[in-house]
Simulated assay, not measured.
Amino acid sequence: MSGEGAPALTVQGAGGLRVVVIASQWHTTVMDGLLDGARRALADAGVDDVTELRVPGVFELPVAAARVTARDVDAVVALGVVIRGGTPHFDYVCSAATTGLTLVAQRTGVPIGFGVLTCDDEKQALDRAGLPGSAEDKGHEAATAALATAMTLADYPRR
């Protein structure tokens, strides 16, 4: 399991942060788990200014992140799942989403929690979705990482 060695992050005092959660619509059961995990992390940290946006798929996450970071937001949480199929489509979508979200974060200085699952099969996705019986909760982890980074950078305003 990929979670071995992960830091034990806790976020406190994040009540004043403005967060946008952007989630894809593919793989409803997995996405429901990822969204629930992100919502729990944000609530646990005291964040109450949360906007949720749904986009068709993972490929659309970067353009949505680019648009919302043009406004006054402190963090973005990007959630999605891509399951490998029999064509190279998996590689193109995963690469485009990763590169796109990275470029948005670098260009804007807004932390983006990367909650995009890139799995070989549905079982792997379900095991990371934060559902009852899942080994990991990647939605919670992505939101916590975005908040922790935003809190760390709070004394360094964006230009």
Results as ranks from 00 to 15, higher is better:
158 R>T: 11
90 F>Y: 15
146 A>W: 06
59 F>T: 10
26 W>R: 06
12 Q>M: 02
76 V>C: 07
134 S>L: 07
80 G>A: 13
137 D>A: 12
151 M>W: 00
6 A>F: 10
113 G>K: 08
121 D>G: 08
83 I>A: 10
153 L>K: 00
83 I>V: 15
122 E>S: 04
9 L>V: 11
145 A>Y: 00
24 S>P: 00
103 L>C: 12
19 V>R: 09
26 W>M: 14
26 W>N: 08
114 F>V: 05
1 M>N: 13
116 V>K: 03
153 L>C: 07
137 D>W: 03
51 T>H: 11
123 K>L: 11
157 P>R: 12
42 L>D: 02
55 V>F: 02
137 D>M: 04
122 E>N: 04
18 R>M: 08
80 G>L: 12
31 M>L: 12
147 L>R: 08
39 R>Y: 02
144 T>C: 05
122 E>R: 12
58 V>W: 01
127 D>S: 06
120 D>I: 01
3 G>T: 14
23 A>K: 05
77 V>S: 10
111 P>R: 12
49 D>Q: 14
33 G>H: 01
34 L>D: 09
31 M>D: 11
101 L>V: 04
12 Q>G: 13
116 V>I: 07
64 A>R: 02
84 R>C: 08
33 G>Y: 08
95 S>G: 12
46 G>I: 02
59 F>C: 01
113 G>P: 00
11 V>A: 10
55 V>W: 07
85 G>H: 05
136 E>L: 14
121 D>C: 10
84 R>I: 10
101 L>D: 09
113 G>R: 05
95 S>F: 00
28 T>D: 14
100 G>R: 00
117 L>W: 09
25 Q>C: 13
67 R>S: 09
71 R>S: 15
13 G>W: 06
35 L>S: 08
133 G>W: 02
91 D>Q: 11
159 R>C: 03
37 G>M: 07
91 D>I: 03
47 V>K: 10
26 W>E: 13
102 T>G: 15
149 T>M: 15
138 K>N: 09
7 P>T: 12
119 C>T: 13
19 V>C: 06
92 Y>D: 13
116 V>H: 01
102 T>K: 00
141 E>Y: 00
143 A>L: 05
135 A>E: 13
27 H>W: 10
156 Y>I: 14
56 P>F: 11
12 Q>T: 15
86 G>P: 03
133 G>N: 09
85 G>N: 03
11 V>G: 02
54 R>K: 13
81 V>W: 09
134 S>W: 01
87 T>I: 11
133 G>S: 07
78 A>D: 03
62 P>S: 06
83 I>P: 00
54 R>C: 10
4 E>M: 09
70 A>M: 08
62 P>R: 03
114 F>G: 03
83 I>Q: 06
158 R>I: 06
4 E>D: 12
7 P>I: 10
109 G>P: 02
47 V>L: 04
78 A>N: 05
99 T>E: 15
37 G>N: 03
7 P>V: 05
20 V>M: 01
125 A>C: 08
14 A>Q: 10
129 A>V: 04
103 L>R: 12
51 T>S: 11
153 L>M: 14
52 E>V: 14
25 Q>E: 15
33 G>Q: 09
